[in-house]
């Protein structure tokens, strides 16, 4: 085995892993505040990819400039979904910390969104066009790096940093953190927890939109595109610790490395089984993940 190939696989794994981390970031943020797992997260990624596909196709903007359209649209989408569908459950099941009904409703959303996309856009695989990043490669000696993936990884780190800053330093971020620590105490301090929940869901969905925009330049868009990302996001957030921003990125990189280095030793389809095995192992051994807080589990 050639060392150059190995280095190439490692770089690819890290880049793709950071993008996976970005994909899972919205999920972990929503969990951190609402303490529920959004099973429709993959569908939110899918919606984000379609929004970015249409934003680029209709306006001809650069995919990264189109974020100016995608992020607000996705924020409103998440805010609206939370307000319409999930808030009533929280109100109805006030005393349950982690109502199972929310899992069910988000699973229902997953089905509705995926199949609505199938109904409206058809089963076609759509590639972004105009796509200024298409197939671009950076070349260092014998190592090739895909430009859209490099940008995507940079966007992942930037988004995570921005989110971290927002949660730590701004007034709204402090209110969100207070709500995630203790809803009732936060309410007593004059924080409107329903508004915080809506905003947290909106931000989580907007981050899913960023992930969608990052993915579309090198990944086809189709109605069920969310499913592989859905299950992968669950694996990543559990690995990194539910609710932890940096945990999501680290978890993503681990999965990315397994997927890119694994095929050297075995058939590439087997790596997927290894990812699930790893996931179950973490759940059995350390369910709070690498960076999760004990009481969240």
């Amino acid at each position: 085995m050639d060392l150059v190939f190995f280095a190439q696989d490692c770089i690819n794994g890290v880049l793709m892993g950071l993008i996976y981390g970005l994909v899972a970031l919205g999920l972990t943020l929503i969990f951190g505040v609402l303490k529920v797992i959004n099973f429709a997260h993959g569908s939110f990624i899918m919606v984000g990819m379609y929004v970015s596909y249409w934003a680029v196709t209709l306006t001809g903007l650069h995919p990264y400039l189109a974020l100016g359209i995608i992020v607000p649209a996705m924020f409103l989408f998440g805010y609206w979904i939370q307000n319409l569908l999930i808030r009533p459950i929280f109100i109805a099941e006030r005393d349950v910390r982690e109502p199972i009904t929310v899992i069910v409703v988000t699973t229902g959303m997953w089905y509705v969104l995926d199949n609505l996309a199938l109904l409206v856009f058809g089963p076609d695989y759509r590639a972004l066009s105009p796509n200024p990043l298409k197939g671009q490669m950076l070349n260092f000696g014998e190592i090739f790096i895909s430009v859209p993936k490099l940008y995507g990884a940079a966007a992942a780190v930037a988004t995570a940093g921005l989110l971290f800053w927002f949660l730590q330093k701004t007034r709204m971020g402090r209110a969100i953190r207070a709500t995630s620590l203790d809803r009732d105490a936060a309410s007593l301090m004059g924080i409107n927890q329903w508004k915080i929940f809506n905003i947290a869901m909106g931000i989580g969905t907007a981050v899913a939109g960023v992930a969608g925009a990052v993915l579309t330049p090198f990944y086809n868009v189709y109605p069920t595109v969310g499913i592989p990302f859905d299950v992968k996001s669950f694996v990543i957030v559990v690995l990194g610790g539910l609710g932890s921003i940096w945990g999501a990125l680290v978890g993503g990189v681990i999965i990315g490395l397994v997927e890119s280095i694994g095929p050297i030793f075995m058939t590439s389809t087997w790596t997927e089984a290894i990812v699930y095995g790893l996931f179950l192992l973490v759940l059995f051994v350390k369910p709070s993940g690498l960076f999760g807080q004990k009481h969240d589990w």
Binding site: T101, T107, N115, L119
Partner: peptide, 18 residues
């Protein structure tokens, strides 16, 4: 209308749960 039955299933599920 491919996937219609799954949309119906999902909508019914959400409405019933709510």
């Amino acid at each position: 209308l491919p996937g219609l039955h799954l949309i119906i299933l999902g909508v019914v599920l959400i409405v019933v749960m709510l």
